[in-house]
Amino acid sequence: MAKAMTKTQLVAALAEEMGSDKKTAGAALDALTGIITKEVADGGAVTLPGVGKIYCRERPERMVRNPATGEQFKKDADKQVKVTVAKALKDSVNV
């Protein structure tokens, strides 16, 4: 498996694609991250065309088991961030 792209590498690639400097590309990436975080935290969803949909799912209260001890206990309701990958991205990977 290939190594994951770091933020520095992503900013450099974004700057090259945009034809701008790394500072502008870094600011754009930070702004995009902030917008996505705020929208999903507020219960909304964000669709990135060609990439996928990022949304928040609420999980109900449930019984879980500690695998070390076998003890069962009630876990409170919580929220979980989910990502649905776009068909275009899946198809580009499975060529």
Rank of each mutant, 00 (worst) to 15 (best):
K75A: 15
I35L: 13
A12H: 04
A86S: 12
L14R: 08
D21T: 08
K3P: 06
R65L: 05
R62W: 00
D42T: 11
G34P: 01
P49E: 08
T33F: 12
K82S: 12
K23D: 13
E39Y: 11
D21A: 01
K90Q: 08
A41L: 11
A12W: 01
R65M: 10
T69W: 03
A88Q: 03
A41H: 01
Q72W: 08
A4R: 15
Q80P: 00
G52L: 01
A2E: 15
A25Y: 06
Q72S: 11
K3L: 09
N66G: 04
N94C: 04
A86I: 03
A12I: 06
K87E: 07
T37D: 14
K82P: 07
S92T: 09
Q9D: 12
A4Q: 15
D42R: 11
E17R: 14
R59P: 05
K90H: 05
D78I: 06
E16T: 12
L48G: 09
Q9L: 09
P49W: 03
A28E: 08
G44P: 01
V46I: 10
F73I: 03
T37I: 11
G34M: 02
T24A: 15
A86R: 02
A27D: 10
A25E: 06
G19N: 03
D42I: 05
M18L: 15
P67D: 00
E58T: 15
E17M: 11
T33V: 11
K53T: 13
V40H: 01
E17C: 11
K75E: 12
M5E: 10
K22A: 14
S92V: 01
E17V: 11
N66W: 01
S20A: 14
R65I: 12
E39K: 14
G70E: 05
I36G: 01
E71A: 11
V85H: 00
V81H: 03
T6N: 03
N94D: 03
L89H: 00
T6F: 04
D78W: 10
T8F: 09
T69F: 00
V64D: 07
P60F: 07
A2Q: 15
Q72Y: 10
A13W: 02
E16V: 07
Y55R: 12
I54K: 00
L89D: 06
V81L: 04
T6G: 08
